[in-house]
Design a protein around this nucleic acid. Structure first.
Lengths: 204, 204
DNA sequence: CCTGATACGGTACGCCCAGTACCTTGAGGA
DNA sequence: TCCTCAAGGTACTGGGCGTACCGTATCAGG
């Protein structure tokens, strides 16, 4: 009746796919080991043989669907680039895919090892690199002072966007907020860093 | 043996105290209803008669210990005020008290009602008000341009600090980072917003 | 083709915890 | 005093994580 007993990579694929589907359908909280096993047409043993804990499976399932595409933009202006990158990030986090990631982050609060992995995905590596190159290009064009190229400054819009997520309940920040972040915060900050700027109150 | 059967407010106090102690001892995940009941010298019924769910008890216990002190600072300069407020926030979030709050936030990801309450505590109301008055004073002193008085701008240092928490595993951000946030981001931003600033590249 | 080793499948556990039901017992008010 | 209501005690359902055990299919090697 069955097409034979699956083993190794094939079974692993099936489990990951099932876990990913469960994540999408019920969120991380609803991703039960039994349900994953049933959906994958196997049982919990096969899962626990590969991942020691539910959280580990969750992370694996997330990485399975997360195509680690490095965001790239080049609109020709700092403003355009920043806005585009923000929009991409906003779209990503607003998708069900982003919801899963947020659930996972919340649920893994007591699993240091998993937090590490997730943190990377959530905006550690590739993303901050994108902001760096973006700023670098702006400097080359003379749009930004070299002093502005600095980790905390470069990726500030993403930080503010995350803050916006924290304030509102759920993502999907309206586009005008993204524009505001760029025009009222990022660009003025870059400008402000360009000034040798005598303090307005040179007291002291 | 016992001092008699406790009722009403007295019992409620005891439960809240016990729940708070459990939170401190084992985090939210370890705050079991049975354990709270046992520690309070009562049983789960008395708890469920007052709070319908575990999460509700968690929030109540948190609010029980959280003395909602409104932070106030006035060092005489924008830089000093901002730094002081950041230091206070950092101290708060680094304390076990802050750890409980973070646990709670993570655990309540699927309880919209609780999220609301927590969000308020986490920096919604009183805190952003403090940043507003701080900036207002700076404007009055001529240290900052009036255009800078804007929600997202005013509380930006807190947003960046939260971002720092997200990147590192656990709070307790070193003091020099707080200084950097103020000197490299907040102050330059305020400065930059003061300029009518012709765009460096007026293309278009 | 036969024989192991390995891993899959099935099932049944143990444990813990949330939340509920039911009854007994004490305390305070009328 | 008696009555009511809440507190205490205990047991139970339901469900989820993680484990154990055992039969069985697949694969590798001779």
């Amino acid at each position: 009746m069955t097409v034979g007993r699956r083993r190794g990579a094939e079974l692993e694929e099936a489990i990951l796919r099932a876990a990913a589907e469960e994540l999408r359908a019920s969120g991380y909280a609803g991703m039960t080991m039994d349900k994953v096993a049933r959906r994958a047409g196997t049982n919990k043993n096969a899962i626990y043989r590969r991942w020691p804990q539910r959280a580990a499976l969750g992370v694996a399932a997330y990485k399975y669907v997360a195509d680690a595409r490095t965001p790239t933009v080049d609109t020709g202006s700092l403003r355009g680039d920043a806005l585009e990158l923000l929009r991409q990030a906003n779209a990503t986090w607003s998708s069900p895919h982003g919801a899963v990631l947020r659930d996972l982050l919340a649920a893994a609060a007591d699993e240091p090892a998993l937090l590490e992995l997730l943190r990377e995905q959530a905006g550690g590596g590739a993303l901050s690199a994108a902001w760096f190159t973006l700023l670098g290009r702006a400097v080359a064009r003379g749009e930004a002072p070299p002093e502005a190229v600095q980790p905390r400054v470069a990726a500030l819009p993403m930080t503010v966007l995350r803050g916006e997520y924290a304030l509102r309940g759920v993502p999907a920040v309206p586009d005008e907020v993204l524009v505001e972040i760029v025009d009222e915060i990022y660009l003025p900050l870059i400008r402000g860093r360009g000034l040798p700027c005598p303090k307005p109150q040179p007291a002291g």
